[in-house]
Nucleic acid binder design. Sequence first.
RNA 1: GGCCUGAUGGCGGAGCGGUUACGCAGCGGAUUGCAAAUCCGUGUAGCCCGGUUCGACUCCGGGUCAGGCCUCCA
Length: 465
Amino acid sequence: MKLHIHDTLKREKVEFVPQNPSRVTLYVCGPTVYSYAHIGNARPVVVFDVLFRLLRRLYGETSVVYARNITDVDDKINKAAMEQGVAIDVITNKFADIYNQDMATLGALRPSLEPRVTHNMDAIVKQIADLVAGGHAYAAEGHVLFDVESFKDYGRLSNRSLDDMIAGARVEVAPYKKNPQDFVLWKPSKPGEPVWDSPWGPGRPGWHIECSAMIEKNLGLPIDIHGGGHDLIFPHHENEIAQGVCAQHAHGHDAGYARHWMHNGFLTFDGDKMSKSLGNVKLVHELIKEVPGEVIRLALLSAHYRGPLDWTGELISQTKSRLDGLYGTVRKVKDVAVHDVVVPAAVMEALCDDLNTPKALAELSALAKAVEVAESDAARSMAKSNLLTAAGVLGLLQQDADAWFTAGADESLSARVESLIADRAAARAAKNWSEADRIRAEIDGLGVEVMDGPAGATWKIKGGV
RNA sequence: GGCCUGAUGGCGGAGCGGUUACGCAGCGGAUUGCAAAUCCGUGUAGCCCGGUUCGACUCCGGGUCAGGCCUCCA
């Protein structure tokens, strides 16, 4: 099946054809590890995780190389380290670990590569040197700056001209810049901050150069797909292109940088942008204490990735109900065998159409219904296999269905409930309905709901989000 | 000011120039000792104004509103 994706640079949906089907390369901008990730940070992670899973289905698990960087050199990191009186790696290691744990809770697979700035300083310095050698960058007062006028395509990704940018510039222009839009590749560190050696003096890299240098070193140019949040188009990705393309000029190459660009839409929180000043930043680390990670994942996939998504309590509760329904179906057939099947075509088609996850989820509902209405064991087995395989590409329904409903119950509660259910079963067998109802009320009082089924009663923790 | 998104039923959210999206919630029925779940059925749409068309939620033009970017924020 052919995959089509919307390419930000071409501004249209295009067929995706990798340069090398046995080595498909994907890069997504990752976190700056100075604090916790918020729910907006999680959207690209989940979206591109679905793309990663889809590409692995299309080209084979070992044929996709997915890199997501970890930015571990940054002013905010320096600030946090300074305030806490520790080395920066104490901060960065801590938050990188938390980030990976939190994203794993959202069902995101670990990328193939997680390059860090501190481990790639050689590549960064080399790329800057190439840019200087090629006449695309200049040193001034301890800084090295990219000369935007040296790259004719500058502004193409974000569709803005240099004139527009100058007109809109609100930032104070440093006197050593040739052009107000020139951006920093290397800069001196302030006293007390970490420093690395370079031909232009001790200092640290700018933000944009790390991605293009790590991509060149770890994936090789050009890569197939570069992804990230919509807000990174300018200046970050615009600058990456400039660096990645121009650095090759020093060696007489011009292979391009990224063959396709994909950007996810913005996430708002109760209608507003999340910001510290509004005090409405929702951290994933906190949210997963209240809401199952899979609910968050499904909610993030409920709208098309390019559109906006408003994060609300209503969205969470609707999503929880929907997922309960799906797991309820799976639970009913928990003893039915599954076998290897191909991903059902309708789901594959939806995902291959620029990751149409809402459509794919609608197809998932149809597959769940097929499980419910199956009339033979063979049909049930087939339907269940289809459902779970389809859900797998979306990273959903992969946990035990019983555990889904009983999560949050400790062992003593589980034992107590099981015991009461046994008593109730005996009462029901004796048609002692009043006793059966009394026991149900007692179970209810424990915050648990009991449901009778043909194969005995099941139970779940009530309420939720 | 420049650039870019979006506007669909009570809520979330897709496709599509003419025929059911789907989900959550509601309603009716089946089933159930009761309940839950499930199944069957059902109501409620397409920001405004023009235009194209036999026919527009879907195409074109113009508005309005909302959000984002232009400040090393996904």
